[in-house]
Nucleic acid binder design. Structure first.
Lengths: 167, 167
DNA sequence: TATTGTTATACTCTATAACTATA
DNA sequence: TATAGTTATAGAGTATAACAATA
């Protein structure tokens, strides 16, 4: 048993985390839809907001195949949200950069997400919110470490960044 | 500010929750893939594991369009994981029931998920895990209430059930 | 030879609109 | 008329396999 003596109204750790996940993903999906982008596209913007990763790095960050990232970047580029920048050192490689329009979108979306999360945790006391934040951070940091990512490179990206990595 | 005085290593509530979400969804995705199903299909199985909802009810639970649910059920039925049962009271309506094969798959997947979550929270003390479970449960319950769902109808579905509803 | 990225292809998921059949 | 569900269609996301360009 993962949860020793689950109390009244406690779903148990597994169900509680899974359902929390669906609730947060739902919020992300609604916000992304309001801005006419998909969740993966929003996540891409969250990452390139602070970096200019290569396609391969993005594939690692997002745990997707390179070809999937090609398509993701294609569609975001068609919409003017990102651009491909030729690498000066390796002519096989490209770096993905955010545009002004893309930055505007992700900044606005991040603010919306903060508001949605505030709603979601409205029932918790400030102390409980801090506790949750600390516990979630610890889990994410451990997971990132396990996967070889450097979570401390993370900035406040509105949470749309997903896993962060060191180049 | 949602997070009063974020401490060392604290990502802040928004980023911590969002990234936790991606980590859990990643685990869900890996497990589903191991069983050769998609995450939405696994979620469908998690719901029909304990109920025989109509297409419309599923659409409400999953926050999807009816036509999306039709496709989801079509593909799951082709694979022998669920079946459509004619409603005796309303001949327009169908109920979706899980098959023995579907049940086997979801039971096995739920066990895998429990193991993955255990890994994810390996760094936490038992007391911290309980605390996290309680906080997450409270958030999910409040969200469900807000959306008009009855979370207390929930059973241990391996967390694959998503939002629960009263018929 | 190995790596970076793209292309071709196929499947799943999703929504909108139009439809059928019941109620 | 209204409701339950399906079909037709289109677009996004994803992976695999094969490929071109460069290292």
């Amino acid at each position: 048993m993962l949860t020793p003596l689950p109390g009244e109204g406690d779903l148990g750790l597994v169900d509680a985390l899974a359902q929390l996940t669906f609730a947060v993903q739902g919020a992300l999906g609604r916000i992304a839809a309001e801005h006419d982008v998909s969740v993966p596209a929003a996540r891409l913007l969250g990452i390139v907001r602070d970096r200019q990763p290569t396609i391969g790095e993005l594939a690692t960050f997002l745990q997707l195949d390179k070809s999937s990232v090609t398509g993701l970047v294609d569609r975001a580029a068609e919409r003017g949200l990102v651009t491909r920048v030729a690498s000066p050192v390796d002519r096989r490689s490209v770096r993905v950069a955010i545009t002004a329009e893309g930055r505007e979108l992700i900044d606005s979306g991040a603010a919306d997400l903060e508001a949605e999360i505030a709603l979601l945790v409205a029932d918790l006391t400030p102390a409980q919110r801090t506790r949750l934040s600390v516990l979630a951070s610890r889990i994410v940091a451990a997971d990132a470490r396990r996967r070889g990512f450097d979570i401390h490179a993370t900035r406040a990206t509105g949470g749309l960044s997903g896993g962060e990595a060191r180049a």
